[in-house]
Design a protein around this nucleic acid. Structure first.
Lengths: 335, 335
DNA sequence: CTGTAGTATGTAAACGTATACATGAAGGCG
DNA sequence: CGCCTTCATGTATACGTTTACATACTACAG
């Protein structure tokens, strides 16, 4: 507002060239003679020229912005993904706009459409998960999408996933190896792919070693903090319940531990968990013997590169599914 | 790509009006007759018209996007701010693009400039903090900025802050009331406003009650997890060190607690903390007697509304400084 | 009836950039 | 020396909107 904006035209005048040449300099077009390039650059410098990205976007139909849509910005998992994606995207000259689906599929579809309609070149989606009813709508938008964390079976798209089955299997096997025999399952709805796969890993470990899965102690639910808290409350009240549990994610784990800490009874002292996710505060999760660590930073990086490659037409033709290995971490329980 | 994009012109043809009229409908201009409006809307519907925001932005010089720049996306504080801001901004029709300053002032200035240059209508900045060397550059960009969490003395700008002094004072007073006499200070560099103010609150509480501040046990540093860990390590090794500490933020607190948990010695059992911030995993911070809770969601909401009002020219003329009260939370220590 | 004000719409020029096409100069080659 | 290529640059249009200005029509006062 102080002074009216400086455009490519002003630069052109100052440098005694046409706007086309200035534009070519902006885009590093090799066809421009290095002397004139120098003149143009100097003109830009002295005028304090700044490119107008909006105008460029209008012309090129590219915003160099990618959308990231997650159930909840305040989840730890998401925030580490976002952190690593942000780093990678910035490096490659992209900006990142975020959105929240608030754990509602309707909202997810709405926000996705809003993002895709014009603002972004592609979107990275951490889906709510259970259904894919709105997916046809989305693919109609004809913009690259990369799914992270939760996949969709039968939907042809790029996906960045984790070896949920293997991670769960390893953890439960480790528990069994230490002598645990009765192991419950505390986790998400089986129709969500992550939860389903983790349950499969749990089951394989149990069946392979000839251990019985007690249906009463397989607790499915929306794996939030309150869910973990309430379920653990019930479990502790049940004198017959197992002492050992595999927990499907961080929130449920945290909720369960919070309950045990608040209750502090004798039962709590016997409980042992194995659980997905490892965070800075994991040392405080005092009943957790094994943590299944996901390579979150790598996943974010992979998602970022995948979406950009897609946008820039560099990727392989078919949909790409990346599945990362987990790492089992053993904690010492101070009892 | 399936079909070429549908523009205002196609709609105009279909509805037998001019593009101006279509545009007026898009902008809810009251001058258009309701009948023709209906015709236009129907034409849009049947053609599946979607407005091109980029083109609109070029014309109006507004992107309806605001930037959020934070030291680190993966901090809990930031993520709750972002969550609440995102909610509010979406409500008011804005998108949010995020950036990271990676705890480097140079990077902060760079990203800020990049954001401001053309992409966003305004930016919400959670500053690195210590200096404001680059601020003149920024205000030259002539785009509204709201500072959150950390303020700048002597810089005329909207700020959303917390009553750091009062919060710290209250917490330390509460400790003293319970009989604690020797209380150390574990915290950030005093030149960062938040840390400085919190130290002031600590000092006031100590001086008011005639207690001595032992300089040896006032530990300043960049309050990260490793800082808390290492410092606590030193403290525990010092047999003369106090048992009670006021901790300036979550990261330092977490680091300190992580050390104590890993060490598990006798000293740990005697330690008592009062500390800023309250998070879902706070119940696990087992040496924390008092937590100073910041109204993070309200702050995010306030920041969002402040920046939008500024952009839309609705706010009061002078710079606005909002200072939120903290809430003291008492935890029961299970020993 | 003329003049004026108001209302609904159209015309056309921007916004700042990218790019297809045209142009002109220089060089190579038969 | 004429022709074709290559290279560096210019000309002019398009991207999809918004909006100042012009226009046409109606209504109503004088």
């Amino acid at each position: 507002m102080a002074h009216s904006t400086i455009t490519i035209r002003n630069v052109a005048e100052r440098a005694n060239v046409s706007t086309a040449t200035v534009s070519r300099v902006l885009n590093n077009d090799p066809r421009v003679r290095s002397e004139t390039k120098a003149v143009v650059l100097e003109a830009m410098e002295s005028l304090g020229y700044k490119i107008n990205f909006v105008a460029r976007s209008l012309k090129t139909n590219r915003t160099h912005t990618i959308g990231v849509l997650a159930p909840d910005l305040s989840g730890d998992f998401f925030m580490f993904i976002a952190e690593s994606m942000s780093r990678e995207l910035t490096l490659r000259g992209y900006s990142i706009v975020v959105g929240t689906s608030r754990d509602s599929e309707e909202e997810e579809a709405k926000r996705l459409r809003h993002l895709a309609e014009r603002l972004v070149d592609g979107v990275v989606l951490i889906p709510i998960g259970s259904s894919s009813a709105y997916l046809p709508q989305i693919s109609a938008l004809n913009i690259p999408i990369v799914f992270v964390d939760r996949g969709f079976v039968g939907y042809e798209a790029d996906q960045v996933l984790v070896d949920n089955e293997g991670g769960a299997y390893e953890a439960v096997r480790a528990l069994i190896r230490e002598g645990h025999r009765r192991i419950g399952f505390l986790g998400g709805k089986p129709e969500v792919t992550t939860a389903g796969e983790r349950f499969a890993g749990y089951r394989r470990a149990m069946e392979e070693t000839g251990l019985e899965i007690e249906q009463r102690y397989v607790r499915f639910g929306h794996p939030t903090l309150p869910f973990g808290y309430r379920t653990m409350e019930e479990i502790v009240k049940d004198p017959d319940s197992p002492d050992t549990w595999f927990v499907v994610n961080l929130f449920a784990h945290l909720g369960a531990t919070n309950y045990l800490v608040s209750e502090g009874g004798e039962m709590a002292r016997r409980i042992t968990f194995a659980a997905f996710d490892e965070m800075p505060y994991s040392p405080l999760l005092r009943y957790c013997r094994y943590a299944v660590q996901q390579p979150i930073a790598e996943m974010g990086k992979a998602a970022a590169n995948l979406i950009i490659d897609r946008i820039e037409g560099k990727g392989p033709p078919g949909p790409q599914i990346l599945r990362f290995k987990t790492r089992l971490i053993q904690h010492t329980l101070a009892r």
